[in-house]
Simulated assay, not measured.
Amino acid sequence: MRVLILGGTTEASALARLLAADARHEATLSLAGRTARPLPQPVPVRSGGFGGVAGLVEHLDRERIEAVVDATHPYAARMSVNAVAACAEAGVPLASLRRPAWERQPGDLWQEVPSTAAAAAALGDPPRRVFVTVGRQELHVFAAAPQHRYVARLIETPDQDGLPPDLVLLRQRGPFDRAAEERLLREQAIDVVVSKNAGGSATYAKIAATRALGLPVVMIARPDKPVGHVVASPEAALAWLDHQRSLRGV
């Protein structure tokens, strides 16, 4: 069965590995193209957008895609909107691989906000030393609060203008461990952490580190995303694909 994985997450890569080892499926992994040097994958990879809903419908038809798994980042709302609409129009079954969100634990000092702009405003007026882990696409938002000193961890250097004036860039790729995260927060004398509620284990160490050090976190809430059939793991996605094969009598 020809499968399209909408990726960019550790779960998408894990599903790609499962499908690469399963001769019953022929998978392609689609990436947004925001990372110039993505990690190698065990299945063919396409990069870049589809051109909206119409472009994705055309791609599904041209490539004879029989099932789609949306394993995009929890904050990649536009792609998920397009996937639901395109799969409905094309009559292609869609599964949405949704990693559970992080949940507040005893000792967590979270201030939950609805957006990155709200996170910048929530930092307040007095200067603070802020560890920002929101990705390079939205880093410019914090220029609206230039009084703070920012430390941002990114895979690649941001290419937009208007970044905060007092900004230190750390080019690092996860996963990270708690001891290293605690050490980083201490060395940079961080007062507050800004994070998206990405879920999963790859970057949770920073949350555990803030809890251990008693640091506050400005937590940006997840956007509401439309979904297909929801699965919680790559293994569950594979089981769903097997079920789709059985429905086709393959």
Rank of each mutant, 00 (worst) to 15 (best):
residue 1 M to Q: 01
residue 2 R to M: 03
residue 7 G to R: 03
residue 7 G to H: 09
residue 15 L to M: 07
residue 17 R to Y: 00
residue 19 L to I: 11
residue 19 L to M: 12
residue 20 A to R: 08
residue 25 H to C: 11
residue 28 T to P: 02
residue 38 P to G: 14
residue 39 L to Q: 14
residue 46 R to C: 12
residue 47 S to W: 00
residue 50 F to K: 05
residue 52 G to E: 02
residue 52 G to M: 05
residue 59 H to N: 00
residue 60 L to S: 06
residue 68 V to T: 07
residue 74 P to K: 06
residue 79 M to A: 14
residue 80 S to K: 02
residue 82 N to D: 14
residue 82 N to H: 14
residue 85 A to F: 00
residue 94 L to D: 08
residue 96 S to K: 09
residue 96 S to L: 10
residue 97 L to T: 10
residue 102 W to N: 08
residue 102 W to G: 05
residue 104 R to Y: 00
residue 105 Q to E: 15
residue 106 P to F: 10
residue 106 P to N: 10
residue 109 L to A: 11
residue 109 L to E: 03
residue 110 W to S: 10
residue 116 T to K: 00
residue 117 A to H: 12
residue 118 A to S: 12
residue 122 A to Q: 04
residue 125 D to V: 14
residue 126 P to V: 06
residue 126 P to D: 12
residue 127 P to K: 03
residue 129 R to M: 08
residue 129 R to L: 05
residue 129 R to Q: 11
residue 130 V to Y: 04
residue 130 V to H: 01
residue 130 V to R: 05
residue 132 V to I: 13
residue 135 G to C: 07
residue 143 A to T: 10
residue 145 A to R: 05
residue 145 A to L: 01
residue 146 P to K: 01
residue 146 P to T: 11
residue 153 R to F: 08
residue 162 G to Q: 05
residue 162 G to I: 09
residue 166 D to G: 01
residue 176 F to Y: 15
residue 179 A to Y: 00
residue 180 A to L: 13
residue 183 R to C: 04
residue 188 Q to D: 06
residue 189 A to Y: 00
residue 193 V to R: 05
residue 193 V to N: 01
residue 198 A to G: 15
residue 206 K to D: 02
residue 208 A to W: 10
residue 208 A to N: 04
residue 210 T to P: 03
residue 214 G to I: 08
residue 217 V to R: 02
residue 217 V to P: 09
residue 220 I to C: 04
residue 220 I to D: 02
residue 227 V to Y: 04
residue 228 G to Q: 06
residue 228 G to K: 10
residue 229 H to W: 12
residue 231 V to L: 11
residue 235 E to F: 01
residue 237 A to Q: 04
residue 237 A to Y: 03
residue 239 A to K: 12
residue 240 W to A: 12
residue 243 H to K: 11
residue 244 Q to H: 01
residue 245 R to D: 11
residue 246 S to D: 14
residue 249 G to Y: 02
residue 250 V to K: 03
